[in-house]
Amino acid sequence: MKVTLKVFRFNAETDYLPHYDTIEMEIDEKDVVLDVLNKIKWEHDGSFSYRRSCRHGICGSCAVKVNGRSTLACKERMKDMIELFGNEITIEPVSKKRVIKDMIVDKSDFWQKYEAVKPWLEAEIDEHPQQENLIPPKEADKLEEADYCIQCGCCYYACPVIEVNEDYLGPAAFEKAYRFTADVRDHAKKERLEIVDKLGQGVWDCVKCYECAEACPKEISPIDKITKLHNQIFEEGVAKSNVATRHAVGFKKSIEKHGILDEGHLVAYSEGFGVLKHIPEALAMFKKGKIVMPWNMPKSKNLDEIKKLVKISSTVKF
């Protein structure tokens, strides 16, 4: 198989702008992306720089983007990439704006945010236990695959919120927070939940785009952990009444009343007095017949069923 590689090149110390090298390369059936990186360095340009270490998907150092898709270079087969994208393959760092040299990025913001959720077990440990400290399998199951994270950063750099809100902790930190909030041995559950509940930095700023789930090379699905953190925030009584929590609760209130969502009421209920700032937009929508007045609000058929189900199936109070 022959491919045309477009390889991102940039040296923050000497270059003003990045450029792409175009390289034609014969690919072996067994090659992974890391083999290609090695060939570029060994056969084309010895100054080409990238991180690599374990070569079996454990150390998380070789994350790159192939045609915009984050991946671990040592795990991803070129054959599959060619099948997905064709014979023109673009190799880029996981985050162009954080590049130090070629594929090597400055991960300091990633690590700062990772540390913000206290990624260690908070527990009183008996230093000389008489017997093994056993966790029942049912409790251990709750962690799901949250313990598999290798901090490669694929999800973090794929997350669109990271690029527009520098306070946002991001999917990797949330995933790790859940790894401990779901651990029965941990004593800092509330403290962690308060960190991830904070507007601006916490889980309420997640746009639910699923980029993190798609990007994770360990198939962890950080967004599922984000949903679980939302649930725990309510279950543990950490949730404060604000626009984000009321927005989630507002759905239940609306469904209970109409079956379908009352969009206008949801905005008013979520925002409180803040609803005033939506008036210009609401007027523009009203003029175009996009606002249903309360007295015309449609209702689902068999609404009694919905009311009953909300009553008997609700598991959370707020």
Binding site: T227, N231, A248, F251, I255, S300, V310, S314, V316
Partner: peptide, 26 residues
Amino acid sequence: LDEASCCGASHLQDFDEFLSLVLNAR
């Protein structure tokens, strides 16, 4: 499907996951 309710728009599940499942299943 005039009987259908709101799907929860990925927000109801943040508050009450089970309720969201029941309503979507309905």
